[in-house]
Simulated scan of single mutants.
Amino acid sequence: MDSDTGLGEFRYLQNAIDEGDFFNGSGLKDLSAHAGTHVDSPGHFINEAYYAKKGVHQLDLDILNGPAVVIEVPDNTNITAAALEALAIPPGAVRLIFKTLNTKKKLMTQTKFDPTYTAVTKDGAEWIVAHPHIRLVGIDYLSIAHYADLIGPHIVLLSEEIIPLEGLVLEEVEAGLYTLHCLPLKLVDSDGAPTRCILMP
């Protein structure tokens, strides 16, 4: 976040055929565990959870994979409790993915960070927690939490071990029901991890 240049060059060739090696072998450098599409673990905002080693390797794959609903959020609102109450969220939905104005603005394709992104407010997070069948919430920008209060919504969600799935690219995805396949890198004890996520009709 707060970058004008995006990720920059994080992949480089450690070994190169052009330089006499037998193979091309890439390395990664200066890549945040919260870059691009990624998940958060409780240790991201809760220090006790970090030292208790509640990292991404302990996230439940049964929650990260399964039926999901993509919900279109009106352009004129953040994801507040009132907005959630007005949305047509199917009863018993476990995985919610919010498609917002962020997608129309193509924020995930921009290198410069945009602090005006749409996200979940603290009272929105409290609404989610009050519906205990919800175990995963996804968003189409780099943070599930609104920039005006990054800490509050994260702590509300992570305290209940609801998985935030951030940085989704939803330009080709319509609202509706899907099967989510999401496998984060197994970074032991990490507070977050990049992940490849696929939505299947």
Rank of each mutant, 00 (worst) to 15 (best):
M1W: 01
D2M: 03
S3W: 00
T5E: 11
L7Q: 03
L7F: 10
L7S: 04
F10D: 02
F10Q: 12
Y12D: 03
A16M: 08
A16D: 15
A16N: 15
A16F: 03
A16R: 15
I17S: 06
E19D: 15
E19I: 07
G20C: 13
D21V: 04
F23Q: 08
N24Q: 08
S26M: 14
S26R: 01
L28F: 10
K29D: 04
L31M: 09
S32C: 08
H44F: 15
F45L: 11
I46V: 08
E48G: 05
E48K: 10
A49V: 06
V56K: 03
H57T: 11
Q58F: 01
Q58S: 11
Q58G: 04
I63R: 13
N65C: 07
P67V: 01
A68V: 05
V69A: 03
V69W: 13
V70W: 02
V70A: 05
E72D: 11
E72P: 02
V73E: 02
N78T: 10
I79P: 02
T80L: 11
A83D: 01
L84M: 13
E85C: 03
E85D: 14
E85T: 14
L87W: 15
A88R: 04
A88Y: 01
I89F: 10
P90T: 09
P90F: 07
L96N: 07
F98Q: 02
F98T: 03
L101G: 04
T103P: 10
T103K: 02
K104Y: 04
Q110H: 08
T111V: 08
T111L: 09
F113E: 02
Y117M: 14
V120H: 03
K122I: 15
K122Y: 05
G124K: 06
E126S: 13
I128T: 04
A130D: 04
A130K: 08
H131D: 06
I134E: 01
L136I: 08
V137T: 13
V137A: 12
Y141E: 10
Y141A: 15
S143I: 00
A145P: 11
A148N: 13
D149K: 08
D149G: 09
L150I: 11
I151A: 14
G152E: 09
P153Q: 05
P153F: 07
H154F: 00
I155N: 02
L157A: 10
L158D: 01
S159Y: 01
E160A: 15
P164L: 07
L165W: 06
L170R: 06
E171A: 15
E171F: 14
G176V: 06
L180W: 09
C182K: 01
C182A: 14
P184D: 09
P184N: 10
L185S: 02
K186Y: 02
K186L: 07
L187V: 13
D189W: 08
S190D: 09
S190G: 10
A193D: 12
R196P: 00
R196A: 14
M200V: 12
M200D: 15
